[in-house]
């Protein structure tokens, strides 16, 4: 039961989430999300804040019990008990680092070995040869992982005293200690500078090369598109699209989800024009009349399409705006409209 042997049943996928739905009372945080991760694959999960990415992660790892849907790992249904999920072979890191702050670096990784060793209390009290062998084995494996993540020199430091980037690495090392077949990373580069992000990218690739599939949540688009074989986009709890980096990048809905709403259709344009005019109106009196251009340089190019709309502020714009050496024609057209009223 614990070690999945029924690989034949699955179509080779490491992780298969089908129709995962999570409701909190009336709120549906995740709605019918399907996701598969193939062996040796790095899959990205992106989406705006509040899209339900972490909730989806929590459903996968058993911290939440999904309201509907199933999650299987290599063909076996995953339990809803987090410690059993880890034992089965899914390990995770946390969005806000959750290390064992007052344990040393080495001890943190050794805790990660918990599911892969069996020595119980009796064995610890009697200290037989089996116990010593297991402890030595665990320590050797933990040191390997620390070498792998580049933390070996800090083995005896307290986790809380590591710099931020190394704490992230240690969390990954701790998760790897449980010998997972699938590693879930929740925003591994949050708060990192570009060099650290690149180092993390290399680390994730190295983990993949060792045969562990990776599912990663991230906001850093360059990181995601450089790294992932496939990217799924989660918006308001629903999966919008899934595909390669190019496909996702080109998808209009994704851009809309991230950058805000539509550039087609009249009502949106009207509102945009209204806002523009109001801004122009608000800034013009404050800045001296000769250079009202300052008010407009940030006007989006999208306004270019919004020509000939009738929406305009109720109050009249000062005449000065007329002469604005505009970035686009839209403000110029709006202003006379305002005057006309």
């Amino acid at each position: 039961m614990t070690t999945p042997t029924t690989v034949t049943k699955s179509n080779g996928a490491v992780l298969e989430a089908a129709g995962v739905t999570m409701r909190f009372g009336g709120l549906t945080a995740v709605r019918a999300v399907d996701l598969t991760v193939a062996p040796g694959e790095i899959v990205g999960l992106i989406g705006p804040n509040g899209a339900g990415k972490t909730t989806f992660f929590n459903c996968l790892t058993g911290l939440y019990t999904p309201t509907e849907g199933t999650v299987s790992y290599k063909g076996t249904r995953l339990s809803h008990k987090p410690h059993l999920v880890t034992q089965t072979g899914v390990a995770r890191t946390f969005q806000n680092i959750r290390l064992f702050a007052n344990m040393t670096v080495l001890e943190n990784v050794l805790v990660g070995r918990h599911t892969r060793t069996k020595e119980g209390l009796w064995s610890a009290l009697l200290r037989g040869p089996g116990f010593k062998k297991a402890e030595r084995g665990s320590e050797a494996r933990a040191m390997e992982l620390l070498e792998f993540t580049g933390l070996a020199a800090k083995r005896d430091h307290l986790a809380r005293n590591l710099p931020y980037g190394e704490q992230r690495k240690l969390e990954i090392a701790r998760a790897l200690a449980s010998e997972p077949g699938l590693l879930l990373l929740d925003e591994p580069t949050a708060g990192m500078n570009p060099q650290e992000t690149r180092a993390t990218q290399n680390l994730v690739l190295a983990i993949r090369d060792q045969g562990t599939a990776v599912l990663v949540i991230e906001h850093d688009m360059r990181f995601i598109f450089n790294l992932c074989d496939r990217v799924a986009v989660l918006v308001q709890g629903e999966k919008l699209i899934e595909g390669t980096a190019e496909v996702v990048q080109a998808d209009e809905r994704v851009i809309a989800a991230y950058l805000g709403t539509p550039f087609e259709g009249a009502p949106g344009d009207e509102e945009a024009a209204e806002v523009d005019a109001a801004e122009a109106h608000a800034t013009a009196p404050r800045s001296a009349a000769p250079q009202p251009a300052d008010a407009a340089p940030t006007e989006p190019a999208a306004d270019g399409t919004a020509s000939g709309t009738s929406a305009a502020p109720g109050t009249s714009a000062p005449p000065g705006t007329n002469s604005a050496p505009g970035t686009s024609t839209a403000p110029d057209e709006n202003a006379p409209n305002g005057d006309a009223r």
């Binding site: 410690h83 805790v111 918990h114 449980s178």
Partner: peptide, 9 residues
């Protein structure tokens, strides 16, 4: 929470 996520019952 982290302990449980590391497979500790």
């Amino acid at each position: 929470t982290a302990a449980v996520a590391m497979g500790i019952n």
